[in-house]
Each structure stands twice: as C-alpha cells, then as structure tokens.
C-alpha cells in the first residue's frame, strides 16, 4: 500500500489522506458531466435536424459515455442486439424519418446519467 498518501497527525497516528484522490474523482465526474452535457446537446440537435450525420459515431459516443453495451442499447431503443451492432459498424442505420425517436431516447438516458453525476 505504498501509493496511498498519508500524513502523521498531531497525535502521531497515521491517517490515510484521500483528499488528492477525492479531488481527482471530483474532476473526473465534472469532466464526465461536461461530456454528457455536450452529448445531450448533440442528440437534441440531431433530433431537431434533418441534416445527414454520422449516425454510427453518435451511437458509439452515446454507448461509451453512458456505459451501455449492445444489449442495453437494444432494450432502450426497442431493437435487436445485432441491429445495434450493425449500426455501430456502419453497416446499417435507421431510416432518417425514424431517427428522431432514437436520438430522443438516447438523450433521455443521457439526462438520467447526468442527473446521477450531479446529485
């Protein structure tokens, strides 16, 4: 346990000091919250736009930031697990007229995760 910082208290007892580590955790959570906040903005923009976009990239980013595997995503988006695989590999994508609901569902998941990070 040599990597755990400690300091000697006034009473000469060893007290483990996690303050630096807690600061790191706080920063990581803040960065995570910022990234997910940006993801929400991108999903909202995608849902509101008819412009062509990198569907596979946006799904992969959502999947990684929200820590969802293909099965999780399939359940949330009411599709099959192989469908999610074909989306993220760029083999297929939903018809443009069917994408808004998918971006909306991803944005809902992202807002849920954001709330957990900020609570």
């Amino acid at each position: 346990m040599t990597n755990i910082p400690n300091r000697i208290s006034a009473e000469s007892q060893v007290v483990l000091d996690f303050s630096d580590f807690l600061e790191l955790v706080k920063n990581v959570r803040a960065q995570m919250a910022q990234a997910i906040g940006e993801l929400v903005s991108m999903l909202e923009a995608a849902a509101a736009s008819d412009a062509d976009l990198d569907f596979a990239g946006l799904v992969r980013a959502s999947q990684q930031l929200l820590e969802l595997d293909d099965a999780d995503l399939a359940r949330i988006l009411n599709v099959s697990r192989p469908t999610v695989g074909r989306w993220t590999r760029g083999v297929s994508s939903p018809h443009p007229l069917a994408r808004k609901a998918i971006f909306d569902a991803l944005a809902r998941s992202a807002r849920g995760k954001l709330k957990l990070l900020r609570d």
């Binding site: 443009p96 007229l97 069917a98 609901a101």
Partner: peptide, 19 residues
C-alpha cells in the same frame, strides 16, 4: 403494438414509402 416512444405506425409508413 409496443413501439419505441416517438415511433408510430403512420410514421413507419412514411419512412417505408420514402424507401
């Protein structure tokens, strides 16, 4: 019929017609 929230069968019809 259980669909993803925001999907409707007329919406599906429009997408399929567009294909």
């Amino acid at each position: 019929i259980r669909l993803l929230e925001g999907h409707t069968l007329p919406g599906w019809a429009a997408a399929i017609r567009a294909m």
